[in-house]
Simulated scan of single mutants.
Amino acid sequence: MSFELAIAFILFSISISITPGAGNIALLGISSRHGFNAGIPFVLGNALGIIVIMVAASAGLVSVLSLYPDLYFAMKLAGVAYLLYMAWGIATAKMDGDIESNHSGVVSGVLIQLLNPKGWVASLTVFTQFINPANDYVSQVATIISVMVGIGVLCMLVWAYFGTMLQKLLQSPKQMRVINGCLGGSLAIVAVMMLGQAG
């Protein structure tokens, strides 16, 4: 990868990782309610989900989704359903609920990635735009996955930190209920927007 292409790839990775999306909004909700450490399992799950998607995409699984639009649509519906489930959980979180009952673990992090069709499409973009066919494919895939996961984890930790800052700023139960409602509502909006996306 040339220097210019590497810079473009890093900027792409940062922009796709730091912008508000389903995973980042869910993480903000988890960490604003339960603190930074409670978001770590979700971040790890998200990273694992990214690895699975990237490995599968590099092996050609994205083309299967292109060939079978019904499979893609089913995946989209499952993703929307799961996001709505998470949105409801964030919006209605009890003020005295424990972390385990709020589905903030590794499995949630993995599922929010695997059930998001945009993640699969983005991975196809990465491999079509940033792989040089003249170079060793496996080493390029390993590098791309490592950089994407590293940047993704760092960006998610920023979101978890912002959630922790919200937790410190908002101490009353009423304020936290309003924030949880807004975060849950935001995640629900993301889910509905995903459903409305073509293809």
Rank of each mutant, 00 (worst) to 15 (best):
M156L: 15
M54W: 02
C155A: 15
V43T: 12
P133A: 11
G163R: 01
R177C: 03
M176K: 15
S17C: 12
S123A: 15
L166T: 11
Y82E: 05
H34I: 02
L114I: 09
V55Q: 06
P41A: 04
A191E: 08
D96C: 04
G150Q: 02
L28H: 05
I112R: 01
A87C: 06
A6Y: 13
S17I: 04
M1W: 02
A38M: 10
A38N: 10
A91M: 11
L83F: 05
H103A: 05
L5M: 11
P41F: 12
S139V: 12
L27N: 10
G196Q: 07
M86R: 09
G196I: 01
F36I: 02
K174S: 13
R33V: 00
L187C: 13
M148K: 08
L61P: 03
G60C: 09
V192H: 05
N102A: 07
G89Q: 05
F162P: 00
F36K: 03
S32A: 13
A93W: 00
A74M: 14
S104K: 04
M54A: 14
V43L: 04
S58P: 06
L111D: 07
Y68L: 13
S15E: 05
L44E: 02
L48N: 00
T143G: 14
S146A: 15
A74N: 06
M194N: 14
Q140I: 02
M176L: 14
I30R: 10
I99T: 10
L5W: 01
I112Q: 14
N24F: 07
P69E: 04
M75G: 08
V55I: 15
Q129S: 15
H103T: 04
S15C: 07
G199N: 11
I25E: 01
L48K: 00
M54D: 12
V192Q: 03
L169Y: 11
V80A: 06
M54F: 14
G49N: 05
G105L: 07
M86C: 03
A142K: 02
I189M: 09
L77G: 01
G45A: 08
I90Y: 05
Q171N: 04
V80D: 01
A122E: 09
A74G: 15
G89C: 05
Q171R: 12
P69M: 03
A87R: 07
M176T: 13
S146W: 08
Y161L: 06
V178G: 08
S108C: 11
I151S: 03
C155L: 03
M75K: 01
S172M: 00
S2G: 09
V147A: 12
N132E: 09
L183W: 08
Y137T: 06
D96W: 04
S104V: 11
G39C: 00
L170S: 04
L195Q: 08
D96T: 13
M95N: 11
L84A: 11
